[in-house]
Amino acid sequence: MTEQTTTPRRVAIVTGGSRGIGREAAARLAADGFAVVVNYAGNRAEAESAVAAIAAAGGEALAFRADVADETAVSALFDRAEEAYGGVDVVVHAAGVMILAPLAETDLDVLDRMHRTNIRGTFVVNQQAARRLRRGGAVINVSTSMLALRLPGYGAYAASKGAVEAITMILAREMRGRDVTVNAVAPGPTATELFLDGKDEETIARMAAQPPLERLGTPEDIAEVVAFLAGPARWVNGQVLRANGGIV
């Protein structure tokens, strides 16, 4: 008689998982067989809607509220994933804030708010991931192709995402011997609520025409890259993948 062994279900935490890129990444990972913890900051209804959609498609997920910049809350987020599913294999850190203004007109309170979420939040989430991920795991941070585009008005936001890329590159090397990959995805202009908010149709059309593929990205485009890094891409490590349709 042959003894059959079952592979444990892989588990993913997706921060900012209630909307936009995070929500689509959560849905894609669930479709790929992950149990998913959908982290959200404040909109419980959206998070529960994301979980319900995953369940309706045959997946498994739960929602958990945590401010990504609060180390106690993020520790509790990982605790919940471990209690519910036995461990954590993949962390997709998609939570972020984008507020645009020319550097000379940027309110420093706005700068501090953006940096708290985008920089401190990345550090806190990655710190817990570094301590807790199982062998064979992956950390996937979300940066931005605006670092390369250097568009006016994006100074504070791009600066915060520059820190995200630095954390990603260094953590990849600090995880030596753990069999955990650490990468970042840097979307170009992507049709999310975060990106579209405050932009007129002319601006959106102009940005959509810039890539050789002549369209905005979609959350599904970015989720496909996330799924690649979370699953088969074991030899991609310490990299920034600029998922932007060839705009840069």
Rank of each mutant, 00 (worst) to 15 (best):
Y157N: 04
T144W: 05
S75Y: 07
F34C: 04
A163L: 07
P212N: 07
A209K: 11
Q127W: 12
K199M: 14
A57Q: 14
V11N: 04
G96T: 06
G177M: 11
N43W: 12
D221E: 11
A53F: 06
A41L: 14
A76T: 06
Q210W: 13
T7M: 11
V139W: 01
N237A: 08
G231E: 05
H115P: 01
E71Y: 12
M98F: 04
M146L: 10
H115V: 12
G217P: 04
Q4R: 14
Y154L: 03
N244D: 13
A158Q: 07
A233V: 13
R206K: 14
T2H: 14
E214T: 12
P187W: 05
L229D: 02
F123P: 05
A66M: 07
M175S: 09
Q127K: 15
L108Y: 08
T122I: 01
T6V: 14
R116F: 04
S145L: 04
V180S: 02
D200V: 14
E193P: 10
A209P: 01
Q128T: 05
A63D: 02
D70S: 13
R173D: 10
E60A: 12
V124R: 01
E46W: 03
Q239N: 11
V14H: 02
A26G: 02
V182D: 01
A81I: 00
P102Y: 07
P219W: 03
T203S: 12
A172L: 04
A26D: 01
G87D: 06
